[in-house]
Amino acid sequence: MNESPPVYRFAPSPNGALHLGHALSALVNHGLARAAGGRFLLRLEDIDRARCTIAHERAIEDDLAFLGIAWDGPPRRQSEHFGDYRAALEALVDAGLVYPAFLSRGEIRAFAERHREETGSAWPSDPDGAPLYPGLDRKLPEAERAARIAAGEPHAFRLDMGAALAGLGPLSFAETGAGSDEEASEIAADPAVWGDVVLARRDVPTSYHLAVVVDDALQGVTHVVRGRDLLPATSVHRVLQALLGLPQPVYHHHDLILGPDGRKLSKSAGDTSLAELRAAGLTAADIRRMVGLPATAEPV
């Protein structure tokens, strides 16, 4: 029986211009997909409707075409599939693993500061450096939760990580590391370091974590290739895959393109965009060399 061809994807957010880091990820995904005779998908992660625009979508498509990247089928826009994420969230709610959380980011930071002042020790933070949610409203009576939601009180829906992990055994994921030809090794997942992560908000029925695992499953993605900064988040994705009965892709987290100051490139920091490099006369071959790839793609 023939195996299905592998499926790769590039999933930018259309909330700004692509930079060299995006170019590396797109080129690596596209190259691996074509070399394996597989499919390459474009996904537009546009759940932030306040910042994502059609103009940014068009710019992304122009940049990819400039790099010689073609995708299979129409792009998947997350904003057109909120029902998929809502169904996944409701399954976790029905399982008793999600609760409405009412503390704002500022209130969480204030709680962490009070803890430090009162105990002399720091409140734990997640891998991104944000203080873990203290879970003060994890066990609120259902009637109080309903009343506060009905009153329009801002809230998010968080995964009760302790309860989620209590029903699962050890989790791991297959990671090919720094080389695409390496045998995958199993890496132990540690979702607990993230605490009770946000899965949705009152005005948006999903978070990045929930949407990405649902999309990868629905699109049949077999290989997730992305920057090394997302390696810790894979632990969250593994617990959600396990809870929802979703397939587990093979992961590959590549090195990042860093700026002169040693930090990763960022849209919000205004790092030089691909459009600016194109306007300055650079070619696709120049971009490939700048991100450490051969000037021309290897023949398939």
Rank of each mutant, 00 (worst) to 15 (best):
P131E: 07
P131V: 04
P131Y: 09
L132Y: 01
L132S: 06
L132C: 02
Y133V: 07
Y133C: 06
Y133S: 08
Y133W: 10
Y133I: 09
P134W: 09
P134S: 09
P134A: 13
G135S: 12
G135P: 10
L136A: 15
L136F: 12
D137T: 05
R138Q: 14
R138K: 15
R138M: 02
K139T: 15
K139D: 15
K139G: 09
L140K: 01
L140I: 05
L140G: 01
P141F: 02
P141A: 10
P141T: 00
P141I: 05
P141V: 03
P141C: 09
E142G: 13
E142T: 15
E142A: 15
A143H: 00
E144A: 10
E144H: 01
R145H: 02
R145T: 04
R145A: 00
R145F: 03
R145C: 00
A146V: 02
A146Y: 00
A147R: 06
A147D: 01
A147G: 07
R148S: 00
R148Q: 06
R148C: 04
R148T: 00
R148D: 00
I149R: 02
I149Y: 07
A150Y: 00
A150Q: 07
A150G: 12
A150W: 03
A150D: 15
A150C: 13
A150H: 05
A151C: 10
A151Y: 00
A151F: 10
A151G: 04
G152K: 13
G152W: 10
G152M: 15
G152F: 08
E153K: 08
E153A: 00
P154W: 05
P154V: 03
P154R: 04
H155C: 05
H155V: 00
H155E: 05
H155D: 06
A156K: 11
A156L: 06
A156Y: 00
A156P: 03
F157D: 00
F157M: 13
F157W: 15
F157A: 03
F157Y: 11
F157K: 03
R158H: 10
L159N: 08
L159R: 02
L159A: 11
L159P: 09
L159Y: 12
D160E: 10
D160F: 06
D160H: 12
M161K: 13
M161G: 06
G162T: 13
G162F: 06
G162K: 03
G162H: 04
G162R: 14
A163E: 03
A163D: 09
A163V: 05
A164P: 06
A164E: 09
L165A: 12
L165H: 07
L165P: 05
L165F: 05
A166R: 15
A166M: 13
A166E: 15
G167E: 12
G167V: 10
G167M: 10
G167C: 10
G167I: 11
L168A: 14
L168G: 14
G169H: 13
G169L: 07
G169M: 11
P170S: 03
L171T: 02
L171Q: 08
L171D: 03
L171M: 04
